[in-house]
Design a protein around this nucleic acid. Structure first.
Lengths: 146, 146
DNA sequence: TACAATTCCTATCACACTAGTATGCTTTGT
DNA sequence: ACAAAGCATACTAGTGTGATAGGAATTGTA
């Protein structure tokens, strides 16, 4: 169970896509604004595409667009697309002899941790973050400062 | 931000120590009951000792005892002793330009995730788990089954 | 039609960390 | 004396993260 730079970068890029107009945003544009290694971001966007979160537009003036309305993309979906299922990695001892049912009191804790994370990540959508981001951009326009 | 086998093993061992009598439990005993690689467990116990969570008793019939009452050891303390500070690993971009204050709407999410994890891990102590474990042991005695 | 911008695909890599092993020394109860 | 235990240090195989590299396919525009 881990959160890495993949989620961080990927979410930054998606919020940028969601908070702008509907026209495609190129990988290059995104990587420059948020200082994300270009080729690395390409991989992340590919994963997000596979997960059905973005659509791509190929060729000149192409880029990426949300595949669904921002209000219907939870942060959890984004993170799981980029990191794999959360929580799947703890308590790997035969799965069912542990955690929920018998023998092991400690196991329950890990379950509660996973639930808490899922809860936080389910409670916000790209739409929510896009709104926040637009506010922030209004105060400090993207071009100056960063 | 990650939870690994260190926490899993370490917590199992501590719950075992906390749910038994006050006499020292040897590393070997613990490693056998919970199928934890013996030498690996030694390292974890050393870390827990450094963190002031257990005391060690050297020599024959020695082992490890809790350094404080089980009710005063939060699971968070255990996890941080074994994994290092949680959450310290996300949003590594200049720390203050991000997350809480300016520019980056996504950053707030990571803060909320860390808080949620800390919250879960702070809400239980070794005492709580020891109670649960005694109940489980009463149903399925340690010797049979595992 | 040429060209440039873009996505797409596959391979490779340095580095760090996880999980575990190995060896031997020191302490202490019996 | 001896065995049972902790203590200390070093080593290692494997895996994952965070990239980088090179090129092929697609498509708007001059």
């Amino acid at each position: 169970m881990r959160l890495t730079a993949r989620s961080e970068y990927g979410l930054l890029a998606l919020v940028e896509i969601a908070s702008g107009e509907a026209s495609p945003r190129s990988s290059r544009e995104l990587s420059e604004r948020w200082e994300i290694p270009a080729k690395f971001l390409e991989q992340l966007l590919a994963a997000l595409k596979r997960a059905g979160i973005v659509r791509s537009v190929r060729g000149a003036r192409g880029g990426y667009v949300l595949a669904r309305p921002a209000s219907q993309v939870s942060i959890l979906a984004v993170v799981e697309a980029l990191e794999g299922p959360i929580a799947a990695s703890m308590c790997a001892r035969e799965s069912d002899a542990c955690a929920q049912s018998a023998h092991c009191a400690a196991g329950a804790v890990w379950g509660r941790v996973s639930d808490a994370i899922r809860d936080v990540l389910s409670s916000a959508t790209l739409e929510d973050l896009a709104v926040d981001q637009r506010l922030l951009d209004a105060v400090v326009p993207p071009t100056e400062g960063r």
